[in-house]
Each structure stands twice: as C-alpha cells, then as structure tokens.
Design a protein around this nucleic acid. Structure first.
Lengths: 232, 232
DNA sequence: CGACGATTTGAATAGGATCAATGGGAGTGG
DNA sequence: CCACTCCCATTGATCCTATTCAAATCGTCG
C-alpha cells in the first residue's frame, strides 16, 4: 500500500527538511497498515527490516529477560520507533506490540539507510531525533535509578497533569497494569503507591486522577526538569 | 593549547571520515588539558559549552536528584561524552568528574555544530556514534529494570571477564564503591552480592576476581546479548 | 445474570537500604 | 620500621520497600 497521503508523516521533524524526491522515493516503497490491538509487530533480537512510524493508535515497546518482562516505553502518533537499530543495521533491542488498533507506516530500513547516505539534510534531522531519543532514555534511566517507586509515580502524575493542561485532574493514558510496568513496579505495588499518595491530595477514580493539593505533591515528588521535562 | 598531535582522536570513528580541513579547524579551537583526579568537569544543568574527549585516564558520569547520587557510566580512552547535549545545544543531563588524573580534549560545542552542518560525512559519523550510545543506554536500562542486583553483578563480572581475555580471572576496572553505584546498589549490598556468588565459584581478592566455575555462573546470570554485548 | 479480566487488599516473604561497628590495607609522619 | 590515620570494604542487626501468593472486589461485556 502506498503512503503518499500522509502529511503528518511529511511534517515529522525527521522528514520535514528532506528533499521531495527522496521523501517520495521512501514513500513508494513503504507500507501503511492497520493492525489489531495486542499484535506483536517486532521481537527483540530480530534484524531491523523496517522503520516503524505510528500514525494512529499506540504502540508499546517492551523487553524480556529471564522470564521477566517490562514496558520500556509507549509510542503515540506521530512517532517513530527503533530508529537506532535501523541505522546501525542491527537487531532490535526491544519488542513492540500494538496497544490499540493502530495504523502504522513501515519503511524498509535499507531505504532509510540509503536516504541517509544521499540526503545530508535527512542525516542532520536524524541526528536531532536520535539525540532527543538518547536524552529521553537517559532521563528514564535516571528516574529509575534515583527515585523510589512512590516518587516515580508522583512525578509521572505531575507530568501527565501538566501535559493535559494542569487543570487539577488528569487521565491515565494507559491501564494501570501498563503504567506499573512503565514505572518499573508490580500492579499491586502501584495500587499501594496510589494509597500512599492519598494524603498528598491524590484522588483516584478509575483512570481519572484528581490532584487536590499540588503544592504538597510537588514537595513530595521534587520534580526535576533534568528528568521530567520531555522538551529539552 | 593545540591538539593537532592526537592521531588517536583523528582515528575515532567520529572523526575518521571527516574532511581534513574541517578536522584541523576543529582542533585549532580545541584545548587539550590534564586534570587531577576527582575534579568536576561539568555539572548537570549547565549549558553544553564543549564536547569532551577522554584521551588518557578515565571519567565518571553521574547524576543527582533529591540528595541521592548515582554513577551513570564511565568513559575511558578514547571516548567522547555528552555528545547529545552538544548537538541539541541543550543542558547536560549528567555531571562528570575525573576518576584519575586525565588528559581531556575539549572542543567548543559551537564548532562541533558548525562542522556538523558543513560536513555531511561528519554528520553521518555522528549518527552512528549516537545510535551506539543510544543502544548502550537502552541496554543499561534493561539491565536495571529486568534483573536483580545479584544478576547484574554476575553479568557484569562475565562481561569484564570476556573483555579481559576470558582466562578465568578478571580485574575490576574501578573500586567497589563505584562498581556498586554503576550497578545501582549500595556498597554493603555489593559486598553481600559477592558472598551470594561464592557458591558459584566467584573468588574475590581485592580487585581481582577469579571465576572458578564459569558454567554455573552462566546458569545463574543468564547473560543476554541484547543487554550485555557492547558491540552490537 | 454470569464470566472474565483488571484492580485492590491482605498476609507473608524476599530483596535492599540504613545504621553502626569492625577489619584491613595504603600512605604518612615520627 | 612502626605507630597512626584514613578510607574502603566487610559484617551484623534492623528497618523499609517491594514482590509474591492468595483472595476479594469491581466493572464491563456478552
């Protein structure tokens, strides 16, 4: 299937400064597909055949080792994943599955690498994207290494709250089981962490959370832009 | 101070394909300095003024939050650090201090960004470097999220053992206090983890470790190339 | 209604952290 | 060469956090 009718993709920072001919060539060999929820798209260890771009829906990145499994991140529209593996022509370090029914653009990795060689602007855009991804993981790593579970939850809630307009309430963007895995804890422990936060004005109603005492939340969470800001 | 007499730097994957004139221009504005041990080179939150290259000695990257501190990584010759911050013209996410007396090359970040705009080969080399760094952090993150402290230690020992020739014994490349921080645990806990590994043939003599029963170590550690391999 | 999965709660356990105290070099100065 | 000191590493005891296992509850969907 062709994928030429995707202005959102063209507008991605990654592609916006690419030459038209190179972009068109990429799209001609790409596939736009819709996948049902919970479908495994890639498995860690596989060779990177495609670069994936989430156009609609959302995708969960996860990893396994030793029989344990953990969510490494979530990709929502319009975002790419496993760019680094594609560029290095290496195997994926993470698996990916759709979280919902999702429309996804697949670009053969060989063509990405060609475009990257031919189009200097594209190469520069990739650098910016990779650098952002890199800093994103460093922040996740710091979050996990420097904070307790309750602190991670508190800061995550503050982040969602801010992202959603900071009006005193927020929606969890995924189910609690997934949130627990994102935060590196068990669902039971997440539930207890919410209870721990109750005295700090956190009121839970399903996937709706009200933050009734922002000040005391921030005193507890001590948000740190070098961990929690997604923009820098 | 000029830094033109540094073939190791020129040989770095990052610079090896750069045009001579661009490389020379970079070196002309760079500084090669020697620093005493335990000197703070950069602090997280500072603007990225320089790209750093460790030519001799070693540098510890660490981060703080909430009064806690943790080692995020160690850089040995010849390696760069905080490339991503330089490229994004953003603040450092990590602090850095010399672990030993170290010779370090400082390249003004503005010049790096210029060269990156002017020299497409350099931009491509940066992509490869960044992609490697990215995958490195992902692996650290998986290590921390999917393994217990004892498993992390066991796998780290196996990695050092392999790196050092796999002859049944290995040297810890840093003191145990730092190793503990790298592995995300306290020194006390590291000491106990070594005791836990004793039945698996791990004999500790200061910073020399003998692995007397590799087979049972690997059964315990279950090393995973998607976490432990530094090459892919 | 009934079934199923997600979430919560409870109790027991394990894994790590903290605090305190001790042992053990390496380096210093007498 | 020997005390002395300092810092690192180890050990013990205790506390706290988080996981595990089990069971109850809740909500949704057929």
């Amino acid at each position: 299937m062709r994928a030429t009718d995707l202005p959102e993709v063209r507008a991605l920072r990654l592609f916006s400064s690419m030459q038209d001919q190179h972009f068109d060539a990429l799209m001609e060999v790409s596939y736009l597909q819709t996948f049902p929820p919970q479908l495994e798209l890639i498995a860690e260890g596989d060779l990177a055949d495609f670069l994936y771009i989430v156009v609609e829906g959302s995708v969960e990145l996860y990893a396994r080792s030793n029989g344990r499994e953990s969510t490494m991140g979530l990709v929502r529209p319009v975002g790419t994943f496993i760019l680094a593996a594609v560029l290095k022509d290496a195997v994926y370090l993470m698996s990916a599955r759709t979280a919902q029914r999702s429309k996804i653009l697949l670009i053969p990795s060989q063509n990405i690498r060609q475009a990257f060689q031919k189009d200097a602007e594209f190469a520069r855009a990739i650098v910016q994207d990779l650098a952002s991804c890199y800093r994103g993981v460093v922040k996740e790593y710091k979050d996990l290494k420097l904070r307790t579970a309750v602190e991670r939850l508190a800061n995550r809630l503050l982040r969602y709250h801010k992202d959603q307009g900071a009006n005193g309430s927020l929606q969890l963007p995924h189910d609690k089981r997934t949130l627990a895995s994102v935060l590196g804890m068990t669902p039971e422990n997440l539930s207890r962490a919410f209870n721990t936060l109750k005295p700090y004005g956190v009121e839970v109603d399903g996937s709706t959370i009200r933050l009734a005492d922002l000040k005391s939340m921030e005193t507890l969470a001590k948000p740190n832009p070098l961990i929690d800001d997604r923009t820098t």
